[in-house]
């Protein structure tokens, strides 16, 4: 049941427990308990909304930053990751395999704001060796949702 609940609310966090119970064919109380358990365990970390800011009048700039760091003795990458993720303008921090170590995504009001963050806050950290900043120009798809196009139902309206 856990996997099925997660499968549904990952795509639509607004579905209510009553409806979840109906479409999964289980008792409402079991859904409530399972979701509470998953929240307590930190499996469910939040219920967010996917917004295409491009379609609003609000200016936002986002960027991906590749960061190379020197791991610290006894701490590995964790302490430097923590120093980075504590900034509220940082959206996500991933430790990754490949040519660099941390991938940081960042949201700001302007190019200047992001550049300033990188040059003032990131590059100046002692254990950070280098950074490479990629500004996002267009989001085609985000969190499994295609943002750029709407597909109409092209099926014939009645078929046997």
């Amino acid at each position: 049941m856990r996997e099925k609940i997660l499968g549904i609310i990952e795509k639509n966090s607004r579905v209510d427990v009553k409806e979840l119970a109906v479409i999964l064919g289980v008792e409402e109380i079991d859904v409530v308990n399972e979701m509470a358990a998953m929240e307590a365990e930190g499996v469910i970390c939040g219920y967010h909304t996917l917004i295409d800011w491009e379609k609003t009048s609000i200016e936002k700039v986002s960027a991906l930053i590749e960061v190379r760091v020197t791991p610290q003795r006894g701490q590995g990458f964790d302490s430097i990751a923590e120093r980075i993720y504590k900034y509220p303008e940082v959206n996500s921090v991933y430790l990754i395999s490949g040519g660099f170590d941390l991938l940081v995504t960042l949201e700001g009001k302007s190019l200047k704001e992001i550049s300033q963050f990188v040059s003032d806050k990131l590059s100046t950290q002692e254990s950070i060796l280098s950074t490479a900043t990629h500004f996002i120009l267009k989001k085609y798809k985000d969190h499994g949702t295609i943002l750029t196009k709407k597909y109409d139902d092209e099926r014939m309206k009645i078929t046997p």
Binding site: D153, R155, M156, K157, I158, T159, P160
Partner: peptide, 10 residues
């Protein structure tokens, strides 16, 4: 009109 008359997957 909206349809519930289709006989093929969406």
């Amino acid at each position: 009109a909206i349809s519930l008359g289709v006989g093929e997957p969406d």
